[in-house]
Every structure is written in C-alpha cells, then in structure tokens.
C-alpha cells in the first residue's frame, strides 16, 4: 500500500511539479531536492496511483505508441499485417535502484532463450520498461557515473541503442525522469542536473499545526493503510479527473507572444546557459494553465513556472551571492 498522494501535507511545489509532468511528459522530468524525511520518495511512489491510461501496441515490450515512433518489432508487424492491435494500460513509475548494472539498465542478450532455442534475442532492461513512463531514481546523486552516462545518452536521444554480447538493438526510450536527492549527501553532475526539466525544493514544515497533521496522517496510514486509502478515495479520484481534463485541454492552449516575451525577458536577465530553460518554462506555464482550467497562459503561470524551471539552472555561486540572485529573480517575477 502506498500513502495517498493527496494526503501529503503542503509541499505544493513538489506535487505540482509531478502533476505537470504527467500532463505534458515533454517537460522533461522533475528533480526533488530536500532533507531526508520530507515525503520526497513517498510523493513519487504515490503518483503511480493517479497516472492516466495510455494507448499502447498490444504485446509490445516497449509499450510503443501506435500513433508515434515504433520499435523495430512493431514496425515489422506493421509492414506484415496492417493496423496494430491497441491496448490500454496505465502509465507506471519504474524504479531504478542504486547499484543497478549496465545490462539491467539497457538490456542484454536473453540468456535462457539463447540456451533453449539457440538463437539470440534481446532481453529488455529498465529503459524499455520506462518508455513512456516515469523512471524514478531515489538518491539520484549517489548513482554511479557510468550509469549516469547511459541515462544521459538515452534521455537525450529518446532512444536506447544496445550493442553487446553480439546483440544489436534499438528501441524507443522516452521516459520522464524523476529523481530525489538530499543535497547534503553530495551534488549532482551538472549535465544530469540540466537534464531535469523542473526542480522542486522541499523543506520541513515549520508550522506547528501542519506538523501535527503530518504526524496524524502518517500514524493513521501506519495503523490501517486500507482505511486511509478509503478515506482519501474522493480526493484521489478528483485529482485524477483534473489531470485527465488538463491533458485533454493542453493541445488547445496556445500561448501568445505576450507570454513568450515575458519568459524570454526573465531568462535573458538571468543570463542562463542555453535555451532549455526558456522552452521548459513555456511548456510548464502551459501545462499549469491547463491544470488550472484556464484557456490562456497568464502572468501567474509564468511566475510559478519560473520557480520550478529556473532554480536549478541558475549559476552556482557562493552562498551570499546566491541570496542576491534569488532577490534578483524575485524582482523580475514581480515585474511581470
């Protein structure tokens, strides 16, 4: 049993960041930074319950999108016999544990098949499972460098290419990267940091009443998880519905030049590297508008999108200067 997502007290930035990635998976994932014991992992795991259904090619090992890019096997099937059978399945959260080996991540030769049938076949790894799903890395800053390299590789291309043990194979690997980390345990490599579309900072709740509420809900969940789930059923269903509606509404939201100008003004003033920040901010603001039931992107959405999309992209500076930069960003946001 997983703690209900809607029962997490506060931490709105983190919850919104996750939801926006469900609404628009192209935002590029979420990194959650914060101390231990602030419901980071709980939130990601709890998200699974709210995830919508996807259309996928039936029987495909990579959950290919019938309307999108297909894996080699589906392409073959398509050529041979017309339309592909479509199945509906729920989007998932696939976990990438620390200490994962290369072969389990990217896939490898199917040993048993090779032994029994004497023919080589590809045995998919976690990247195959993660296609069109969330890929969740707990303590992502502790992940080994060579695993990070592989992740970055396929995250950039949206494709996993395997050349090993005499098997060569390519399959789509578009996943939403969700990571949690405690910055006290060490930093994240800058390339990986930038790969996360959004970043949410979580801190412990310092307000007494909320703190008591957190404890009450945790104790209630520990005592009887089933009862807790039933008690939060209504909230869960409601949020699920809102996410679905936002997904449907998203294509109709056309951000105007006005919104674009505001975004560019902020990113230019902060002199950020590259253009990823601008693009991510635009997508985030748009998904936010859809989630809030609006038909256009307004200043409020841009402000909230900036908080999620820019924090981890600002230049790293000594602590005192960091404060000054935060001040500057506040000024910029107030200006829009």
């Amino acid at each position: 049993m997983i703690f209900p997502f809607t029962a997490i007290v506060g931490q709105e930035e983190m919850k919104t960041g996750l939801i926006l990635n469900v609404i628009d998976p192209s935002i590029g994932g979420l990194l959650i930074m914060g101390e231990k014991g602030t419901a980071k992992s709980t939130a990601v795991r709890a998200l699974a319950e709210l995830l919508p259904e996807l259309e996928a090619v039936e029987g495909c090992r990579f959950q290919c999108d019938p309307g999108g890019k297909l894996c080699g096997e589906c392409q073959e099937k398509n050529r041979m016999g017309g339309p592909l059978p479509v199945a509906h399945r729920k989007m998932r959260v696939v976990e990438l544990p620390l200490g994962v080996t290369e072969d389990r991540l990217v896939g490898t030769l199917d040993m048993e098949h090779a032994l029994q049938k004497g023919e080589k076949r590809f045995e998919p790894g976690l990247l195959a499972d993660a296609n069109r799903n969330f890929l969740y890395v707990d303590e992502v800053n502790l992940l080994e460098d060579h695993i990070v390299d592989l992740l970055l590789d396929s995250a950039a291309m949206g494709v996993n290419t395997v050349e090993r043990e005499g098997v060569s194979f390519t399959h789509p690997a578009r996943f939403i990267l969700a990571g949690t980390m405690n910055p006290e345990e060490g930093d994240l490599r800058p390339q990986l940091l930038d790969r996360f579309g959004l970043c949410a900072q979580v801190v412990s709740v310092r307000e007494k009443e909320s703190r008591m509420e957190i404890l009450r809900r945790k104790a209630a969940f520990d005592a009887d998880a089933g009862r807790m789930a039933a008690a939060w059923k209504k909230e869960q269903t409601e949020l699920e519905r809102r996410i679905k509606e936002a997904q449907t509404a998203l294509p109709s939201i056309q951000p105007g030049d006005d919104a674009l100008e505001k975004i560019v003004k902020i990113t230019a003033a902060l002199s950020l590297d590259g253009h990823r920040a601008d693009i991510v901010m635009m997508k985030t603001a748009r998904a936010l508008a859809a989630f809030r039931g609006k038909t256009a992107v307004e200043a409020g959405e841009i402000r909230d999108a900036a908080a999620l999309a820019l924090g981890h992209r600002m230049k790293r500076l000594p602590f005192e200067e960091m404060g000054a930069q935060a001040e500057k960003m506040r000024g910029l946001l107030d200006g829009i």
């Binding site: 914060g34 014991g37 412990s204 703190r211 404890l215 945790k218 104790a219």
Partner: peptide, 12 residues
C-alpha cells in the same frame, strides 16, 4: 520544531 531538525522523521 525547537530542535530545528531536518525533515519529519523525527516527529514520527
């Protein structure tokens, strides 16, 4: 709150 500890595990 007074201990200013990190996170909420301590409460639990």
């Amino acid at each position: 709150l007074e201990s200013r500890m990190a996170g909420h595990r301590g409460d639990v």
